[in-house]
Design a binder for these strands. Structure first.
Length: 652
RNA sequence: GCCACUGUAGCUUAGCUCGGUAUAGCGUCUGAUUCGUAAUCAGAAGAUCGGGAGUUCAAAUCUCCCCAGUGGCUCCA
């Protein structure tokens, strides 16, 4: 007999040889919803045999661990279906991921119809309720099992000497190398859906084999799956590409070129408001502004290190009579020359040089996406020239600036990342190992001091130094960098930066901080649009007030209201066409004005307005002067909430 | 850059499997209507079906090559 701790302080006696699943069924019943078990805290199959005293705890299908097991098993199910239908396909790896799983196969690419057929086959395998059983093998027998699959052999080669990979899982005729655990049988896998296929490289190495990746989602319940589908539908509605088209924020035209968006009047308003805000903020922080050319000579980018380290990211050179010119991918080389344009004194440091301008980067064509990833990057950029002693407070100011910006724009879902160099891959970076280590430690110390939560990421540094990146997750779950604060220890030597210190001698210890707290305007507006679903706060709304007349009689009062708003700097439009009121409201909703104002007899007679909020609630009989004053206040304070109509501030 | 998928009026979209030069709604324009909070009525214009080549008596539809978009991989703000 063995003594099993079944949780809640309860201990049961069983005869040795009982399985974890039988214990769970005995304690929690047949419908426990468990997919596997923790045996002494380790994830095990339900079929795991217990032969000594231990603790057993069910892993529920809707727990984090349970859904990963479910998704992992679903990946095996996919591999089984694929290898049955395409016998030449070689399964490689197939891990669980958030919301689902994927599996990479070495095979010919498949069409959408074939994807549907695979899903159908998976459902058939589920109906057959195949047992999923674990098999232990020694190295040799494991190798002979997978002798026709070089990918599995390569995985085993990497794991020689370790216990991991000594097991395989079998379901029907299909067997896969796997550590497990798995659900007991295919019938546990009901709520899944294959979503897409794509290409991936074996071992994420573009010089290795190209594989077909199939993605799917998988949940423990029908509701879970439905909720995920609903979330994705909801996300599609917030897509900045869709809203950007409807609200006429930007356009992309093939004839101009891919990755080169054109800001339309409404988008230009958003961009302008963001930039205006940045100029005000930076003035308060002691920045000075410059404008530099969009291109420069090859020698400049050689000096900066761009051509040795970043040439792939730049547009190719233009041949001129006096040499080769490149479009700038970054502003820093220009700003360095602004700094060294004259002899600087320690009294001038920290010197903060800002520029609102556009840089051009040759991003890989396959990565371009709406405004989120472009080749034209409009940036509120700046470089801070300072001594090592001043780095901490300058970085701290910028972290604060970022936090203040995000709070003003309503962003709350982001995290800090300390992006470090990869010492294993030094050719990507400027080769000064001691400086990398010391500046990285410096940044780490500053973040710790500030008490900011952050994650560290090796290999994410810029070529010239470590950085603090602020990371966001897109609607589709992809992580993107927004703001960045970068420390550059190499510029001082490359550009001979120096200043005259307190002792009167030339001091070359100039540190440069590169920072773009608002990301690029393209990416920022994409996030902003998705965050607010186009329902921007009043100060950002391209149309702040849309006036709608009820009939011809009301044109005059509408014009009076419009000019009063216009005089106060409010962006206002009038629709006095002969459509019905309902029709006009419907038409203008797609432009998402902060407020609509209805003008009819009542308003004309009393000199008031009737305000309609985005959610349809309204406030009648507001005196014109009061309306102008309150919307003016809402705009100038950059209020995130639309509060002119009671109840409407709940709509964000 | 790599792989797959997609590409029909400004927008959404039918037709494509089984070839016979295209369907509808919204929007636009014109006329009527002057109307109180998510579609007033009628009429008109608008598409060489992403581009090019091929097969065919005939191509939106079949084949090939480009281009662009989308999803991923790699890369990155």
């Amino acid at each position: 007999m063995i003594n099993v701790d079944v949780g809640n302080g309860e201990h049961h006696e069983y005869s040795a040889g009982i399985t974890a699943g039988e214990v769970i069924e005995n304690v929690h019943g047949r419908r426990s919803g468990a997919v596997a078990a923790f045996v002494d805290g380790t994830e095990r199959d339900m079929s795991h045999v217990l032969d000594s005293d231990c603790s057993v705890e069910p892993i529920s299908g809707d727990s984090d661990e349970g859904s990963y097991i479910l998704r992992h098993s679903c990946a095996h199910l996919l591999a089984q279906a694929v290898t049955e239908m395409f016998p030449e396909a070689k399964p490689t790896i197939g891990p669980p991921i958030d919301h689902g799983f994927y599996y990479d196969f070495h095979m010919d690419s498949i069409s959408e119809d074939e994807l549907k057929a695979i899903e159908k086959r998976m459902k058939e395998l589920v109906k057959r309720n195949l047992q999923i059983s674990r098999e232990e093998h020694d190295n040799d027998s494991l190798r002979s099992l997978f002798s026709d699959n070089p990918f599995k052999i390569e995985i085993m080669d990497d794991k020689i000497g370790s216990d991991v990979g000594s097991s395989a899982y079998r379901q029907g005729d299909f067997i896969d190398l796997c550590r497990g655990p798995h659900v007991p049988s295919t019938s546990h896998l009901r709520w899944f859906k294959l979503t897409s296929t794509s290409q991936a490289y074996w071992r994420a190495d573009k010089n290795r084999e190209s594989l077909v990746r199939i993605y799917g989602m998988c949940y423990s319940t029908k509701e879970g799956l439905k909720e995920r589908v609903r979330q994705l539908d909801e996300a599609a509605k917030r897509d900045h590409k869709k809203i950007g088209r409807e609200m006429e924020l930007y356009m992309i035209n093939e004839m101009i070129g891919k990755g080169l968006p054109v800001w339309l009047p409404n988008g230009e308003i958003l961009k302008g408001e963001i930039e205006k805000f940045a100029v005000e903020t930076e003035e308060a922080y002691g920045y000075v502004r410059v404008t530099t050319p969009v291109l420069g000579k090859k020698e400049l980018f050689e000096a900066s290190g761009h051509l040795p380290h970043y040439a792939d990211g730049m547009y190719p050179p233009m041949e001129m009579d006096d040499g080769e010119y490149y479009l700038k991918a970054m502003n820093c080389p220009f700003h360095h020359l602004v700094f060294s344009n004259k002899k600087r004194s320690y009294r001038e440091l920290p010197m903060r040089i800002a520029e609102y301008g556009t840089v051009y980067r040759n991003e890989l064509s396959g990565t371009l996406a709406g405004l989120l990833r472009v080749r034209m990057l409009s940036m509120n950029d700046a470089h801070i020239y300072c001594t090592l002693d001043q780095v901490a407070s300058e970085v701290a100011d910028n972290v604060r600036m970022v936090q203040d910006y995000y709070s003003a724009f309503g962003f709350d879902d982001y995290h800090f990342r300390l992006s470090l160099w990869d010492p294993e891959n030094t050719e990507k970076y400027i080769d000064q190992p001691e400086n990398w280590e010391s500046t990285q430690n410096h940044l780490r110390g500053i973040l710790d001091e500030l008490g900011v939560d952050y994650v560290e990421a090796v290999g994410e540094a810029a070529f010239y130094g470590p950085k603090i990146d602020i990371q966001f997750t897109t609607l589709l779950g992809r992580e993107e960098s927004m703001s960045t604060i970068q420390l550059d220890f190499a510029a001082k030597e490359r550009f001979g930066l120096s200043y005259t210190d307190e002792t009167g001698s030339d001091n070359g210890e100039v540190f440069v901080i590169h920072r773009a707290p608002l990301s690029t305007h393209e990416r920022f507006v994409a996030f902003l649009t998705e965050h607010w679903a186009g329902n921007f706060p009043t100060w950002l709304s391209p149309v702040q007030v849309q006036i709608i007349t009820i009939s011809e009689k009301h044109k005059v009062h509408a014009a009076t209201v419009a000019s009063a708003l216009y005089e106060s700097g409010v962006r206002v439009k009038v629709d006095d066409s002969d459509n019905t009121v309902g029709k006009k409201i419907r038409n203008h909703r797609k432009m998402k004005p902060a407020y609509m104002v209805i003008i009819g007899d009542e308003e004309t007679d009393s000199g008031t307005v009737s305000i309609r909020s985005r959610d349809g609630s309204q406030k009648k009989g507001v005196p014109l002067f009061d309306f102008v004053a309150s919307i003016f206040a809402e705009i100038t304070t950059r209020d995130r909430r639309l509060s002119l109509v009671p109840g409407s501030d709940e709509v964000e």
